[in-house]
Amino acid sequence: MSEYANFLRADLRLVILRILSEMPGYRANSSILANLLHQMGHATTRDQAKTEMRWLAEQGLLKLEEVGSVIVATLTERGQDVAEGRSQVDGIARPRA
């Protein structure tokens, strides 16, 4: 994978965490996340959003619940720490000041 592709993926993961940190209850489904990612400049499919959500869950940053064809993600405390720059995880961009 190219350096640019890795950069985009790391930023996409950070944006997912930051979106969830601003949602009521720190929750959103994969459809909403894909739409918001698109609005924020990430041209991702719902499948790509789900793939990154699963990766973030493997890192302990999200809890996932499958409801039909969508996945509902809830931000964990650790995920909020990463979203706000208090903690760092390889593969996720750091928020800028």
Rank of each mutant, 00 (worst) to 15 (best):
S2T: 11
S2V: 02
E3L: 14
E3G: 12
Y4G: 00
Y4M: 08
A5K: 13
A5Y: 09
N6R: 13
L8T: 10
R9V: 01
R9W: 00
A10C: 06
A10L: 06
L12T: 08
R13T: 01
I19L: 15
L20W: 04
S21D: 15
S21P: 04
E22L: 14
M23G: 01
M23K: 15
M23V: 00
G25H: 10
Y26M: 12
A28G: 12
N29Q: 02
S30Y: 05
S30L: 07
S30F: 06
S31I: 08
I32D: 10
N35Q: 12
H38M: 08
Q39N: 11
M40R: 15
H42L: 07
A43H: 13
R46S: 05
R46D: 07
Q48K: 12
T51N: 10
R54W: 01
R54F: 06
L56A: 05
E58M: 11
E58F: 08
G60M: 02
E65T: 13
E65W: 09
E65P: 03
E66H: 05
G68I: 07
S69C: 03
I71Q: 06
T76Y: 07
E77Y: 11
R78E: 14
Q80N: 09
Q80M: 10
D81E: 14
V82H: 04
V82Q: 02
S87H: 10
Q88G: 01
V89S: 00
G91T: 02
G91A: 04
G91S: 03
R94Y: 00
A97F: 02
